[in-house]
Design a protein around this nucleic acid. Structure first.
Lengths: 105, 105
DNA sequence: TTTATCAGGTTTGTATCACAAACTCATGTG
DNA sequence: CACATGAGTTTGTGATACAAACCTGATAAA
């Protein structure tokens, strides 16, 4: 851990990928549900299609979610699942943030 | 609370002004310390001068902190204090976020 | 069959914002 | 004086959140 003139930085760093409210919502839902489609997530998070799409791409790039594109009755259906990496990232983030917030008590 | 086709948004909204990690650190320190100068905050948060300065301005604009410029032995000294509004904002943010994070348990 | 419509996404454009480099301005110091 | 140093502020830039416009394939209507 870096030190600056004897002052420490606040322990753990915040994972910005999880921290962003839009993505945090997505992750929260996926964490409990295990698998959800695009439209469901859109309603649950109240994000626009475009916005949701780009956040999902970012999460996928980071390996936090897996995206599987199926066809159900010839209608495309995109299913999102939180990967193990994503789960761990969220759990760590949760720890970090709660600790940080509780540190004032 | 807004509803979209029967789906609810996640209760409380996240205060982005507090949410930003750099500002969250600042607020956390001010919350416990009640009053701190610029240089102290710089070291504690490990932010650059420029960065710290602009975050402080934003917090001041929002009325979350009070900035008082004094001279101590002819050296300028800027003291920051968390206002009541800022305290409440933080407390609400803390509640909101912990609730949100705990909601998966 | 051609045209329109719609569902399910993706790509593009833009406004905002975090951050650091460069600047300001006053005060020591040789 | 010239130069450095401390304490911030302003400016410039790259990243990013968001929505508007676009795309692509399936069904509906003419």
């Amino acid at each position: 851990m870096t030190k600056i003139r004897g002052y420490e930085l606040t322990g753990e760093e915040i994972d910005k990928l999880v921290h962003e409210p839009a993505r945090l919502k997505i992750i929260l839902y996926l964490y409990t549900v295990e698998s959800a489609d695009f439209v469901y997530l859109m309603h649950k998070t109240s994000l626009s299609k475009g916005n949701l799409s780009s956040h999902l791409s970012k999460l996928e790039e980071a390996g936090y979610i897996d995206i599987e594109k199926k066809f159900v009755d010839k209608i495309p259906r995109t299913m999102m699942t939180l990967s193990d990496k994503g789960k761990h990232a969220f759990e760590k983030y949760k720890e970090t943030l709660i600790t940080l917030l509780r540190s004032v008590d």
